[in-house]
Nucleic acid binder design. Structure first.
Length: 735
DNA sequence: AGTCCCCCCATTTTT
DNA sequence: TGGGGGGACT
């Protein structure tokens, strides 16, 4: 077979990786060096050049989006579909194993997945029933502890305790939580990986089967693997299978949630025969941007080391803007975005990146003010929204009445007269009989353990679910969804609520129906008999494992706003890094230890390398945080970028500062005023008559901003009043 | 049962 | 500053 199409378009390093004869291979792929490309071409190479069966290949990613993209690109390259190949996330693949081998994994056949929210609710309930002091041991903290242990592959029994209060309490909760999950047939995200790992360790014949099958294992974003994920890979790889991992230690930014950068750093020690290929040619950014990134990241210790280079041009300098405060910063950015957009560029090619979500507000305000379309990434994902989770709970109950999480959620949503008292009684009964809440409800009704009124309500609830199940049993998946959101009363509930929020909720519920109607189970290679509920179950699994990327609106041409973390893997022509201040970035929670600081620096590296052509850095002299004003020093990361790459923007003020309108934000302006005094310029005062190249003549009405930035409001004779940045507007002072 | 108010919190997020 | 959660009050 002619395989030239696989190699021809690659550079030498990429080709070395793709056609590597090595048993184990570490590809150190710098930002923008064609990482995914190498993975995709490697798969094609294996199949077409080395005649490997697609069935023998396993490709692992972290996000569903990445998995979809990889599969898509593979199919594009080889122009056919390889159904038998497993491409998925760690969780998705592990989940698939558990579904196939639920018995060996010690799970009920209808086990279901607990998401972070379900998990927290459950832990809260447990803590309460265990009389644990919520002040001292918040449920959040317990949840964090449990997940961290699971990421490390540790069960409560494996953890040594020193009898300190903290560990003792945490273990108590952990144990109770494990029991509750077992009882209810629930597994959380960490448990999926942990179980899948144990499944192999405890069942050599199953492990052997998969070891025999997956002779070629490829892993993307390897620097993000945590302990249990790495252990899982190592077990599967065994001694014989080929492991190819691709990643970039400089882009490891998830240490705080268990990712171990050591996994990539010590890969060639763990796998002594591993080859290393470095992809250092960057196809994304200008050399200016790359140099800045290289110089910055060189400040980190213990790197595997690599130096990005490009054949492309130098490009523009990096612009640095010192804003007076966060509002001024936002205004500056929005002005630049308007220039960009007015210059005929696509807004969606521009992104504003920030360290913490709270920063988006100011930017949003500024964008809203000028009416520029924008899109904020992050926030609550589709399947995590309250109304969606409620609807899914009803659907879950159709399949399994004993799903306590679901019952807890919707037993009184919409309100049907089952109040806290009643629910507490039901919980009590469930505890006593060691049964599900559903059974406890039945028990309560039968044994008249409730007031007549409450019993009536509970009975009505039981009947409602049973009736819906009956009515739905023969319906198509999307009809089931439709039926349930109608007859559960959820729609009516939100309609009654009224308001903008409620309308959005109803829309979301409708969207859920749409999602179900376009859902078909990805690969039914396993012989699952298609009972009517199987598709629903598959959909619910998918809803738990896939955040339901809000990929709508992608057609809109909108500026992209997101955190630095969510920008990883993306690229934009124009990038702003906002809030480059000590304490914010690097964040104060992470800057007191070297590991934390270095991760922040990697985050900055990620941010810089998102930019293709033009990068703006900005910081504010003062920023309002948690209600009060903080004076901020510029981020050390700015100083780590060579000066010659940076162009410091000074919006020279040309205002006559003796003009009366200055008082407004007077109190903390001292610093800025003095700076301003250093750059005295042509005098413009309120009431001054000026001329503008485009707008003609007008009168200065107002003044805003200080320090290195200043804007004036001019009432033009022809076009009315406009706000202009002084240094850009080139106003001519008349008489 | 629902509303209102007060208090507490505030880094990053996928599965 | 502002959002969310919990408690108290109607």
């Amino acid at each position: 077979m002619d395989v030239s199409h696989i190699l021809d378009s690659l550079n030498e390093q990429q080709r070395n990786a793709v056609a590597s004869p090595a048993h184990n291979l570490l590809v150190l792929a710098g930002a923008g060096s064609g990482k995914t490309r190498v993975l995709v071409h490697r798969v094609a190479w294996l199949i077409e050049a080395e005649n490997v069966s697609p069935f023998a290949i396993l490709a692992v990613t972290f996000t569903n989006k990445a998995a979809r993209e990889m599969r898509g690109r593979i199919e594009e390259l080889v122009s056919q579909s390889y159904g038998g190949m497993w491409v998925g996330t760690f969780h998705g693949l592990a989940h698939r194993l558990l579904r196939s081998h639920w018995q060996e994994a010690g799970l009920p056949e209808d086990f279901h997945i607990l998401d972070a929210d379900d998990q927290l609710r459950l832990i809260k309930r447990l803590c309460k029933s265990m009389r644990i002091d919520e002040e001292r041991w918040p449920a959040k903290q317990c949840q964090w502890y449990i997940n961290a242990q699971k990421d490390e592959g540790l069960r409560a029994d494996n953890i040594e305790h020193f009898n300190d209060d903290y560990t003792k309490t945490m273990l108590e909760v952990y144990k109770a939580y494990e029991e509750a999950c077992d009882r209810g047939g629930m597994i959380d995200f960490g448990e999926i990986l942990l179980r899948a790992h144990e499944l192999w360790l405890n069942n050599p014949q199953i492990l052997q089967h998969y070891q025999k099958r997956f002779q070629y294992i490829l892993v993307d974003e390897f620097q993000d693997t945590n302990t249990i994920q790495y252990a899982w890979l190592r077990v599967l790889a065994g001694a014989d299978n080929q492991l190819m991992v691709v990643g970039d230690d400089d882009q490891s930014i998830y240490g705080w949630r268990g990712a171990r950068i050591e996994n990539i750093q010590s890969f060639n020690t763990d796998f002594a025969d591993a080859d290393i290929v470095r992809l250092e040619q960057n196809y994304r950014s200008t050399s200016t941007i790359l140099n800045a990134a290289n110089k910055l990241i060189a400040n980190n210790q213990g790197r595997l080391g690599k130096n990005l280079w490009t054949e492309g041009g130098e490009g523009e300098q990096i612009s640095l803007y010192e804003a007076f405060n966060e509002q001024d910063e936002a205004r500056f950015i929005v002005d630049r975005l308007q220039d960009w957009s007015n210059g005929g560029n696509r807004r969606s090619d521009a992104a504003v990146l920030y360290r913490s979500n709270a920063q988006s507000r100011e930017l949003e305000d500024a964008l809203l003010r000028v009416g520029m379309p924008y899109r904020i990434y992050g926030g609550h994902r589709f399947y995590e929204r309250l109304e969606i989770k409620n609807a899914l709970s009803y659907l879950r109950l159709l399949i399994n009445r004993h799903d306590d999480t679901a019952v807890e959620r919707i037993i009184n949503v919409p309100v049907r007269g089952i109040g806290g008292r009643t629910i507490e009684t039901v919980r009590q009964v469930a505890r006593e009989h060691n049964c599900s809440l559903w059974q406890a409800c039945v028990e309560c009704v039968n044994q008249s353990l409730l007031t007549a009124r409450a019993a009536n309500s509970v009975l009505a609830f039981l009947q409602l679910i049973d009736d819906m199940a009956k009515a739905c049993s023969e319906l198509e998946l999307h009809e089931k969804a439709e039926y349930v959101i109608q007859h559960s009363g959820l729609i009516g509930h939100h309609e009654k609520e009224g308001g903008e929020k409620a309308r959005a909720r109803i829309e979301n519920l409708d969207e859920l129906v749409t999602a179900t109607s376009s859902f078909d189970e990805p690969n039914i290679e396993e012989e699952i008999d298609l009972k009517s509920n199987t598709l629903l179950a598959a959909f619910l699994d998918q809803a738990s494992l896939d955040a339901g990327d809000t990929q709508a609106d992608e057609t809109d041409d909108a500026v992209q706003l997101m955190t630095l973390h969510s920008a990883k893997g993306l690229e934009f022509q124009l990038v702003f890094l906002a809030g480059m201040e000590e304490g914010l970035f690097p964040h104060k929670m992470s800057m007191d230890n070297l590991a934390g600081l270095e991760e922040e620096r990697r985050l900055c590296y990620v941010g810089i390398t998102r930019a293709k052509n033009k990068l703006y850095l900005s910081h504010a002299e003062s920023r309002r945080m948690h209600g009060d004003v903080n004076l901020c020093r510029p981020s050390r990361f700015i100083k780590e970028i060579p000066k010659e790459l940076i162009d410091e923007i000074r919006l020279k003020t040309t205002i006559n500062r003796t003009a009366p309108a200055f008082g407004q934000n007077g109190k903390s302006l001292g610093k800025s005023f003095s700076k301003e005094a250093e750059v005295p310029d042509t005098e413009i005062s309120l009431g001054q008559r000026v001329a503008h190249g485009k707008f003609g003549e007008g009168v200065v009405l107002n003044y805003e901003g200080t320090g290195s930035n200043a804007r004036v409001q001019v009432n033009f004779d022809a076009v009315g009043s406009k706000w202009l940045v002084l240094s850009y507007a080139k106003l001519e002072v008349l008489n």
